[in-house]
């Protein structure tokens, strides 16, 4: 439902930038999907890294710092998977040449610049809510990708990424509870 409970109660929704978009596999090659996932992880990493240094809330800043590191690990995992699936070393300008990006984007196709603009002046609670929506999209993305790829190893990698995204969601939810 558009606008969530706020809109139901007749209040104006905050209009977070992630609203209403979802990933579709559109018949892409596994290599393209991996490159896409890598790009989105990189976008999320930049978003979280920015929040980690600008948030005054120490506990939330610490979580976003850890998530920044987690996204780095996911990027490395995806690069390793690309090597296996493509049976080739990624180019030095990876993922260019495989997918194109007008600018940095993260889950839901959201532009990092737009998310950071939205984030300005918002408290940890609002940023956690947005981040949970992003991680949920990530979770959805990796489930879909796991279904699309062939080979036990690739499926295992995506299953692990799914579990890690689930873990991130749980940690964010716990922090959100603190402020309720």
């Amino acid at each position: 439902m558009e606008g969530g409970m706020h809109a139901w109660q007749g209040l104006t929704a905050a209009g977070a930038p992630e609203a209403g978009m979802s990933f579709f596999t559109v018949g892409s090659l596994p290599e393209e999907l991996i490159a896409l996932a890598w790009t989105l992880e990189d976008g999320s990493r930049k978003f979280y890294a920015s929040l980690a240094v600008t948030l005054a809330d120490n506990e939330a800043a610490k979580l976003f710092t850890e998530l920044t590191t987690a996204e780095e690990h996911h990027k490395a995992t995806l690069l390793g998977l690309y090597r296996d699936v493509a049976a080739a070393e990624p180019g030095t300008d990876f993922p260019r040449g495989i997918i194109t990006a007008d600018e940095d984007r993260m889950e839901g196709g959201v532009k990092v610049s737009e998310a950071l603009e939205w984030a300005k002046g918002r408290d940890a609670f609002a940023l956690l809510e947005l981040s949970m929506a992003l991680e949920t999209d990530s979770y959805d993305l990796y489930i879909k990708m796991g279904r699309r790829v062939e080979g036990e190893k690739a499926k295992t990698v995506f299953a692990r990424l799914v579990e890690e995204e689930k873990g991130h969601l749980g940690r964010m939810a716990a922090l959100l509870d603190r402020d309720l």
Partner: peptide, 19 residues
């Protein structure tokens, strides 16, 4: 393919439609 091409709008309902 551009990144934005991988994402499409999801059908949503307004609060009025849900009511």
């Amino acid at each position: 393919m551009g990144i934005a091409d991988y994402f499409k709008p999801v059908d949503t309902m307004t609060p009025g439609e849900v009511r």
